[in-house]
Structures are given as C-alpha cells and as structure tokens.
C-alpha cells in the first residue's frame, strides 16, 4: 500500500495564554508542534504499512520551517516526505490549501489511501481533508476510529458519529480523517531521529505542482479573515451586584448575549 499522510505544523495552542492586561496572546515560548491529531494519522499509516507492506509519504504545505513537521514524521517511520512551500501559497484558506495539497498529491502519483487528522488544533475547521478528497475525486470518510480491514481496493472502517458509530465500506483510493480513539501514537525511534536529522527536505513550489495562480494563496481563497479579537477578556472580572434575583438575572442576560446559554 502507498499511504499518504497529511500533516500540519501548528503552534501548541494548549501553551497559548492570554495576557489579561493587554488582551493579547502570549506567544513567548509557544512551541511549534506537529498537529496532535496528525500523529494518530501517521501512526495508523505506519500500522497499515506494517500489516500490508508498502510505503508512507508525509505531505505538508507551509513555510520552509514546516519541514520540521515532516522530519518528525520521518523520525516516527515515514519513508518519504513532500513539502509544498512557496510565498504564493501564503494566506490560503481551506479551499486554496486543499487545492495545493490535491495538486501535490497528484504529482506524487499512485496511492491507495490518504490519511489526515480530523482537524488541526489552530484552525479547528476539519475542512481540508474533505475538500482535498473532493478535488482529487476520491471518496471521503470522516472520523475513523477503527480500520477493520483492507481488502484489495476496499476498506471497512468505523466512523464515529454524534450518537454512536457507523461501519462504513469505502472503495480505494480514498481519503479518511482519524480521531484519537483510533490508536496510541508511538514515540519516534532513535534510528528514525537520526535519519530525520540528516534529511534534506526540498520544497515543491506552486509552479512545480502545476497550480493555477488564481486558485492558490490569498487570491485563491474564497474566505477572508476580517477581524481577530480576543474572547471575553479575563481579569476584567465583574462582581455582580444586587440581591440574589438581580444578580442571577443580570448573569443570565450576559450569558445570553454571549450565546453561552
């Protein structure tokens, strides 16, 4: 099997804190990590390779330093990596990202399965997987929590749903996204780390993957971020006044305004 894993380098959002005086993000010392959900995707790819043979290729799109995420994939056992990096990709939303990834995957050529984490922890959109599948013209199955079997050009897997799970059969090649219930990711191996250290990652540019310049980067992105602001500030705490009824009424009003209840 040739399995392609989509990975993303993200800031470790669990390390991000808000400065309560200035209402800005405190980013100091926030490390860049491989998107945690992608570690499950890599692990599942490695397990499929161990079972069925073949190879695992890790693919990412991002700035040059995103090569680090690919090196991590190699340290875990990936055979091959592809970095899509070009200033022209900057500002891509999920549509334009999916377009670039699908072009990159086409250039890689033959594959049986593409695996991605269910979403990235910085954007939390869960859109790049299904959009990439659509652009590649292959079936997509989300939230896989268990791959039951792969037989020839078919795969049977369990898809986590809101009220339980479905057992789904899909033809291959397909793109699936995986949830954390699927496995327990391994730690890297020393040999893998040594291989990763000496690995030279060369980037494929927008031209290398034959992309339409109107479909990449900010220009190719249908959506645009128009405002970024901190959520309800902490620290500017408000002690509610009045008797119990008044306090609770004013609380209810505030929570309702923020759609919290």
């Amino acid at each position: 099997m040739h399995i392609i894993v989509l990975v993303k380098q993200v800031p470790d959002t669990s390390e991000v804190k808000i400065n309560r005086e200035t209402n800005t993000l405190i980013r100091d010392g926030v490390p860049s990590i491989i998107n945690p959900y992608d570690r499950y995707a890599i692990e599942e790819a490695l397990r499929l390779r161990e079972k069925h043979g073949g190879k695992v290729t890790a693919v990412t799109m991002g700035p040059p330093q995103a090569a680090e995420a690919l090196k991590e994939a190699v340290s875990l056992g990936a055979d091959d990596v592809v970095l899509l990096s070009d200033r022209a990709f900057a500002g891509a939303d999920t549509w334009a990202t999916s377009y670039a990834l699908s072009q990159g995957i086409r250039k890689i050529g033959d594959f049986d399965l593409v695996i991605a984490g269910k979403q990235a922890i910085d954007g939390d959109t869960a859109q790049v997987g299904p959009e990439t599948a659509d652009m590649l013209g292959i079936p997509f199955v989300a939230y896989i929590r268990k791959i039951e079997r792969v037989e020839g050009k078919k795969m049977v897997a369990e898809r986590l749903m809101d009220e339980g799970y479905d057992v789904v059969e899909t033809s291959l090649p397909a793109l699936i996204t995986v949830v954390k219930e699927i496995n327990e990711p391994r730690v890297p191996s020393l040999k893998g780390k040594m291989k990763a250290k000496s690995l030279k990652v060369t980037a494929w540019t927008a031209a290398d993957i034959g992309s339409d310049e109107n479909k990449i980067g900010l220009r190719g992105s249908p959506t645009q971020v128009v405002r970024i602001f901190p959520p309800t500030p902490r620290g500017q705490r408000e002690i509610l006044s009045g008797n119990v009824e008044e306090q609770v009424a004013s609380l209810a009003k505030k929570l309702k305004e923020q759609s919290l209840i």
Binding site: R186, V187, P188, S189, L190, K191, G192
Partner: peptide
C-alpha cells in the same frame, strides 16, 4: 514495547 520501538534496547 515503546522503548523497543524507540530503539533504546539497541543502544
């Protein structure tokens, strides 16, 4: 098993 997979027995 994790230690083995990480090559630490090979050390």
């Amino acid at each position: 098993k994790a230690i083995a997979q990480a090559d630490l027995y090979a050390l």
